[in-house]
Nucleic acid binder design. Sequence first.
DNA 1: ATTTCTGCAAAAAATTTGCATCTGG
DNA 2: CCAGATGCAAATTTTTTGCAGAAAT
Lengths: 163, 163
Amino acid sequence: MSNSHSHHHHHDDDRDKDEVLARYMAQHGLKSTRQRSLIIDTFFAVGGHLSVEELWNKVREQDTKVSVATVYRTMKLLSECGLAHARNFGDGQTRYEAAAGRDHHDHLVCTGCGTIIEFENERIEALQDAVARRHGFKVTSHKMELYGLCRECQRGGPVASEA
Amino acid sequence: MSNSHSHHHHHDDDRDKDEVLARYMAQHGLKSTRQRSLIIDTFFAVGGHLSVEELWNKVREQDTKVSVATVYRTMKLLSECGLAHARNFGDGQTRYEAAAGRDHHDHLVCTGCGTIIEFENERIEALQDAVARRHGFKVTSHKMELYGLCRECQRGGPVASEA
DNA sequence: ATTTCTGCAAAAAATTTGCATCTGG
DNA sequence: CCAGATGCAAATTTTTTGCAGAAAT
């Protein structure tokens, strides 16, 4: 339900992403390797909010001997060039989510079953900017999470926890 | 819970806090110990957004042999009874901040110098509730952080990092 | 007396890093 | 070739835990 009104066309997201990545790598003298490509492709293909370990598992389905270290290093890269955002939802792990070509969005996190729903709200964004301006801040990014119980969990009681 | 308009008098916050704490401890069969009191008092006295280690250091100025484990355990407690909130600002550590008697507030985090400014905005809160309602969520808490450069850091360039 | 703490040190969990060895450009 | 990347294991960092002794109710 996202990618509705991008300023461009259909799969420009992908193109943008690749461009951003290529430019960044060139500027920083980085090399394109089999592992990096695999990790990055997997990351964008799977989507969602992946912990490094989850991503690592997915990656290893393709190439058994990619090391976690490489996944950590690659995700840090993606994060630095703005194609992924690191998030912390309170479970001990850092989770990454794709950022390219997406409007900013925030999260509703169900503390019962762990479901994460994304949403966007322009009016909130506008107010955030206003607040920041009022404090003399130049905002570069933000995150917002609402924690609570989803419809299901309000009824039947929380579904068994599953980390 | 923290629905109180804090426009009461001076130390109602403290009273509230102590009540909440006492009730919670009673209901859960918890004991009031020297260490817990020290940690909790220190936590509220210092204020700000403390990591466990920072708090531990402060605590040890009073009592050299409180263990870090106790600080972790106590902060988890405070967090569970709603008197403190755990936050993650992206440096590897969980930080806690006092919650008693305060209206909900959010943060402006300067990525240049690390300064954290708190703010409240009812209109944003209202919009958040609306969004949640629209998704069938019953929100229990939320967090929101805006990252960017504060006035200072926009001018003179980022102050030397001081991790 | 009984139940709940605390300190300590070991254990876990998450992430980073050193280094010898490969690899892309 | 050579800068940069990878794997692996060891090292860090952050948080949790088991347990025996200490305290609180």
